[in-house]
Structures are given as structure tokens and as C-alpha cells.
Amino acid sequence: MTDIENEKIEIGLLLEAIYRKYGYDFRDYAKASIKRRILRHCNLSGLKTISELQHRILYNVQFFEALLMDFSINVTEMFRDPSFYGAIRESVLPVLKELPHIKIWHAGCSTGEEVYSMAILLKEADILDNTQIYATDFNEKIIKKAREGIYSLEKIKAYTTNYQKAGGNQSFADYYTAGNESAVMNKNLRANVVFADHNLVSDASFGEMDLIICRNVLIYFDRKLQDTAIGLFRESLPSGGFLCLGSKESLRFSIYSEDFEDVRIDEKIYRKKNSHG
């Protein structure tokens, strides 16, 4: 048996151990990606084999928490893919505006940049006060950061450019208060936001949403797990409800692809079809 095959066994055992001990289920994450995270972690911790890592993980909670941070790839930006936000402004907000009350779910919101970006769009469309936003992630430390909404000035500079590229024409500086090194996003942007811990693998739907945004999360799942998550979104959307994925994700390879129609295929914005044709 080759090293590669041995490693595959070790990875399967490690993920099983994490699941049984801590309840986090990574067993159906995309394996190539997970393997890279694991090997990187072994490397940084000076461990030679995945089996050694497994031993540490089982007997040391802090060690597990560090691995969890590494597994949840938190890369994000405000107005990431500016053209996506332009498309939301054009093709989604006019429809939401007609509703008496709006509910939005950001699944896998990471440190919150996506949530504040959307809140700014809603505010500019004059519907923020009328909207309830759920912002969830399975990483509690990250959720805490999202709730604080504090970003380095260096990042804010890049976000300002993104905001403008997304068609924003107000003064972006009005949305935050700058300190010496960082800026705090305005409280009123998160007045209607509930930040919560939610795992897309194992937790249930928490009600009907008009718009679900789950960007750059499903790329880390395998096809089967992707379908579990999309099934959950399908269940949480009424006919006509919107689903937005990341720019390199799509419903094409999902068993539920027929249940959705394209709104803006270029920006991965979909809508749930009427269940009866």
C-alpha cells in the first residue's frame, strides 16, 4: 500500500474522530482541500503523521480549536465580486421592495463583511428598517468578530474601492467610524441583524427566507454535502425566493438544479420555481 493510500485512511479516521469527539462533521467536505488543511496543520505543529495529529486532537481541546480555525477558510471582503452587488441592486432589491417585510439569511457569513455590504445596499434602497437579517457561521470565534464589525483601515481602503465598483455613489466613510488602525461599522447597519452559530451540515432550517446568500462555502463541500445544504435552502425558500451562490459555484451539478431558475446566471443569482410548474 502506498503512502497516499495510507494517508487517505488516516484522514478518514481523523475526521471520524473529530465528529465523535466534538460533533463537527467534516466527513463529507471536499477531500483534496481538507487534506491540504490537515497536512498544513501537521507541518505547522511539527507533527510527522496524521495519526499523531489525531492523538493530539482527541486529547487537547485547544489543539482542536486551532484546527477548526484552519478548516473554516474565512477569506472574505466587503463587496467581494462588486458586480454581484450591482446585480443584487438591479435584479433583486426591486422585488424585495414590494414585500411588506423582508427576511434575509447569510449562511457562512465569516467575519461579517458580506452582511455589512448587504445592509448598506438595503439602507440605500430604503428597506433596511423593514428587513430581518440572519447571519450565521459554524465558527463561533468568527461570528463574534462579525458582530463587532471592526476592520483594519487597510482593508477599509480596499472595501471603499469595491463599494464604488459595485455602483455605490454615497460617501462610504459615512458607514463607519475610523480610529487609528481600524474602523467600526455603524451600529444602525446591524440593528436588525441576528448573528448566530449555525452548522449547514447538521442544523435545521430556521424559517422561511426571501433571500438566502451562501457564497464561497459550498466549494468546500463534496457534491453530496452540497446537496444537503442546497436542500436546506430549498426548504427555507418560498416559490420565488432568491438564492445567491459564489461566483465560482453553481446549481448545475446539484440534484436540485431543476427546482431553481436563473435570475442572473452571470452572478449566480437563482430563484426557487413554483412547485407546480
Binding site: 497516499i4 494517508e7 487517505k8 471536499a30 477531500k31 483534496a32 482541500s33 487534506k35 491540504r36 488543511r37 477558510i73 477569506v75 464561497n216 466549494i219 468546500y220 463534496d222 457534491r223 465560482k248
Partner: peptide, 30 residues
């Protein structure tokens, strides 16, 4: 991916770049 599908990732740059050739080679060899 192990099931002979493509996977994309925005994880940190490797060898100072993203996409990285090392990432492709290492996952393809598996």
C-alpha cells in the same frame, strides 16, 4: 478531488500565488 471532480478554493496563496501549481500537482498526484 478524490472522486475525479474539480474543486476550486480561495484558501491562502501557496508559493506566493493563487492559483498555485503546487496545489494542482499535489492534489492531482493523490
Amino acid at each position: 478531488e478524490w472522486d475525479c471532480t474539480i474543486a476550486l478554493s480561495t484558501s491562502e496563496p501557496v508559493s506566493y500565488t493563487r492559483p498555485s501549481i503546487d496545489v494542482l500537482f499535489e492534489t492531482a498526484v493523490d
